[in-house]
Design a protein around this nucleic acid. Sequence first.
DNA 1: TGATCCCGCCAACGG
DNA 2: CCGTTGGCGGGATCA
Length: 854
Amino acid sequence: MTSTLLDVQLNLEINPSSSTAAHEKKEVVFAEPHTRLSASGRSQEAQKVMGPLSTPTKGSSEAPGGEPWTPTSNLKMLISAASPEIRNREKEKNIADETENSSQDTEHGEEAERLQLSRKEKSLGLLCHKFLARYPDYPNPAVNNDICLDDVAVELNVERRRIYDIMNVLESLNMVSRLAKNRYTWHGRAQLAHTLALLQREGEKHHYSQQIQQIRQRPAEDVLEMEGEEKENEDTDGEITLREPGFSETSVDAKGASRKDKSLRVMSQKFVMLFLVSSPRVVSLENAARILIGEDQVVDQDKSKFKTKIRRLYDISNVLSSLKLIKKVHVTEERGRKPAFKWTGPENLSLQGLQVEASSCPRPLESRSSVDNCAKNLFCSPSTKRGFTRHHSLVKLAKSIQDDRRKINSAPSSPVKIISDAVTGSFYTSKMDHLAEICKMQLDQQAVNVQKLSDLKEAAHLQQKSSVSSPIPPAMTPGVEALCPQTVQLSFAPPPCCSFVPVLVPQAVYVSHTPVRPRPVARPLPSSTAVRSMTFESPRGANTKASPASVTVTGQRRRPGYEPASPALKRTCLEGSPAKIKRTETNSKSLSPKLCEILQARLKDRRGALNSSRASVRALHLEPEFKQKNPHNNPDTVEHSMELQYFLETEEREEKVQNQTTPTVQESTGHTNTETLIPTGYLIPISQQSLLGFKETPTSNGETNKTPTYIYRTPTAGSITPSPQEFTPSPLPVHHSTHRVSPNPSILNFTLQNLALIHNPHSTTHTAPEQPSPVPCTHTHAHTPIQTHGMIFIKPVSPLTLISLQQPTLTTPKSGSAPQQCFFHTPVSTMVTPTPSKSLYIPQRKLDVSSEEH
DNA sequence: TGATCCCGCCAACGG
DNA sequence: CCGTTGGCGGGATCA
């Protein structure tokens, strides 16, 4: 602890010391390429205006992205974290300040210039590049991959609105998933292949290829009409509806369904589908627009609509181009030369692994939390065609899901809240129990899923995934290298689809300094090309055309992945954006045996109940999320849901078995908790991502402790949500004792908050280095690859200090059982997290605690 | 001049 | 009533 505390203090002190210092520190620390990138990007302007970044003023100004660490800033952070409102205020202030400063400092001319840069410089594609640069293609699951929209917007110096556009597209590809309001979790390309495969499948279902063919053959207008007809037909088929879980436009539109149905996400997915099913893999915007319009609405395909659609497609195309999935080309049709895009992404998506995975994986469409989608589908459906709607049970589920989602969403994004609740709440409260159950279930499922997935995919994924194991913080090299213990690999091997990953490699700990993100160096770099420039050029290459933009891009291009250290750094920055970062804590939790036992018992009971009855509603919700599955995407339907349940149940059972077998034990490591820390104000656990792995630390007990270390980072402005997903469960099958279950992030959060913090010797930093050691894998769970012994969380931000907590008792709900990974990123999960509250205190924001629960 | 697509109004949505 | 999301399309910019 002491060390941690010290660290914290140091950080604080340092930060405050001077903006400059802070600044430097930031860079150094984060060193993320991305940061640089962003720096270059956003800074370009800023810099131009301000001059050297170094200037404090500037820093602050720049800060949007990162605020300088100053005492004040710390306060701000805390405050902001406290409430969104405050946060906003702060932002405004900062902005104002910045503007002032900048204006003062720099000349207007420059600003003007900056404005001028415009168009291209402000292009969505470029922005997307910047955004992508900050995250590794294959994020280390262990690390906190949360994305705070506010932070990103600030850092990239763009309006939120723009970020939404990007996120929507990325979400449609499962490259990110929404955790809560303002919060997303970065999945990178880990699930991309899978998602694409699913989309392809969907596209086939919809007969897009046929449509495309027809359209291509006919004159535009005819086409339109035809399309409309076709679409209608399709709709009737019901497939369409099904297809998009989240949205079925058709039906929705008719109703006036929310715009969400017209969502960019849906469009994006459909657009991608078109590429995936068309033989030439080239789709012209016009045709795409026609087809999409057709689907959406047969009627009204007027020009304006068409025009609008085209606009949107440009937006999507820019993002996809940034992802290098497509590149701009021109096709000459009868009518003439038309803008079009060529697919440059992976070609053989075939569901390869998908089939298997499919079950567990999320469907492509549902980018949003599956829950959302589910909910939507279910609810909407009645009017809609979707069949599932009808089932009462489903409806209920959907509702519950929605509720959860709502809560989550609406909830102040900060996870904190949850925590607070948790803290407040008595552990034993029914709610808690519920949570526990849920958690447990989730964990179990996750574990199961993970295993399955891992089995299936592993090979492939392993590569990608970095190995957590690699001691080197930086990256997770794509698995192979790291490899160390298989276990590790497994852990990493994230289910392709699932966002979360189970990770937990003991070894892999990232050292604090490294910011984290491991990046697989190996992975192909997608260098990004400047968006625009890309258009015409081949993606990979050289795009760099000379345009300024391109330059920028280039820089970006290197991106994280490439640069070893940087990536991590960047990430860190992001996550904890400099400003935000506050601290992380690590805690090892040990559950108190008693508590654990109790919990387990309860869990078991519940489970039993659940099994018999079926998963609780929530569980169901979760599932969908977890699984996201559906490869079929048709979310459709009941069947689908049924499957899920089945899955869940099955998994649960399995886990139960396992659990039963394993004694719940846990010894507490004896750490005491200290409430300690949290000097800052509140800590936020870093969610899964943060977790690096579990490490085991041999505890005095003899058993290894698997104390998981959690890292918390302060939320930046409130955005702290724990990300559940990624986390993976380390130990699926945890057998014995400790359960340390790797709780899903939310759980972790809870626990952290509640738990006393105990310092872990290993804590992050230390651990990191250590981890590589195989030890972790140890015994315990043979199965679990990851073992769970301890989870380690890394702080996202280097500056952050980690605090290790030990939970005396982990209340994690399921403690005994498996670790879970949580997929559910959904807030739900968060909610779930139960923490025992006990100690704790952590002042987090005052936020409303309440929300959660109920 | 057509292709692109930035910008930001403003509504939907949820708390 | 407020904050977040995000549809939408005017109109600026680019080629």
